[in-house]
Design a protein around this nucleic acid. Structure first.
Lengths: 170, 170
DNA sequence: ATAATAAAATTATGTAAGTTTATTATCTAT
DNA sequence: ATAGATAATAAACTTACATAATTTTATTAT
């Protein structure tokens, strides 16, 4: 009658006093942390009068356009969303003059996306707030802890891709 | 004409060669990792014939109901979603006999949720797969790295709550 | 050079995962 | 006994996507 939840991990390195509680807490906290980060982005987005996906697209382009800009497809692939979604959100950003579209001289089917002058003004306006928030978010980390965290997260993310590519179900 | 993206962090501990690139990569990878974890959960959910939010609710209850069960409101608060959403998804789970509702003897307004016998059978069926996936997801971590990661993530999550509670915008 | 095929963006439509608002029943404090 | 507060729920709405179909332009094979 009184079921106990089965263990979700077997590696000894991940168990404490034979319990996977700490491991489950970590998994929960990783997703919770990502959720908080997206909450912050949603707040910044609202401050700009745009939505969270629009904010993510705008900032991705701002950080990765060089001189040439990015295509719709590049943005969709990088953010792991569909092209129609990028088209839809970018059109909203074009309407409020935060993104500019121009034809791709190398490919007549393609379009190049760049953040507008106004877009960069808004980003520059937000930057001090962003620095304040990020400094506080990572206030407790020493340089070596930051390095460790970067390495650990990168490693696990890589392993996650491998795991997903051959999930034993579905 | 050629705008450069402003720095998003100032702490020296988080900068490399005066660039915040590594920091931005970390933030990106944290959300990417959480996204991959949710992708895995969605796959397990599909295998059960339920949705990802249903899976998350089912597993939260399975792990936290003791003898007594959990109320709708407790689940909503813990998972940070609205009560109506929990009601909706739990009703689906009741329909397929994975969750059982019972009146709360201590409060006539309230309802107690528990995973059904069939629910635990499904969870026990999935457990070996879950262990395999989790072992592989964290295959690269030593015990001390796992400990460090737990501490770092918990610390940052705590700081994140503080940051959100007093965001300088909105 | 032309025909077939592929690729990029877009339009239209659909859906999953939530939210907000309103209602009802019960509880708590005066 | 009454006046709020709280728990669950129902109904309606919204957001953040995806899928399918279409158009235009490129590429490849003949």
């Amino acid at each position: 009658m009184d079921h106990q939840f089965p263990k979700t991990v077997t590696r000894q390195e991940l168990l404490f006093e034979d319990s996977d509680a700490k491991f489950r807490k970590l998994l929960y906290e990783i997703t919770a942390l990502a959720d908080r980060v997206e909450t912050m982005r949603a707040t910044f987005a609202r401050h700009f009068g745009i939505t969270r996906p629009q904010y993510n697209i705008l900032f991705y382009i701002a950080q990765h356009q060089r001189d040439v800009g990015l295509t719709t497809g590049q943005v969709a692939t990088a953010l792991r969303v569909s092209s129609p979604h990028v088209v839809q959100e970018v059109n909203q950003l074009v309407r409020v003059n935060l993104i500019e579209k121009s034809p791709n001289p190398d490919d007549g089917r393609s379009v190049l996306l760049r953040v507008s002058e106004r877009g960069f003004v808004m980003i520059d306006d937000l930057a001090p707030t962003l620095r304040d928030v990020n400094d506080r978010l990572f206030q407790s980390l020493s340089k070596s802890e930051f390095d460790q965290l970067c390495t650990l997260v990168a490693t696990i993310l890589e392993d996650a891709e491998g795991v997903i590519s051959k999930l034993p179900v579905d």
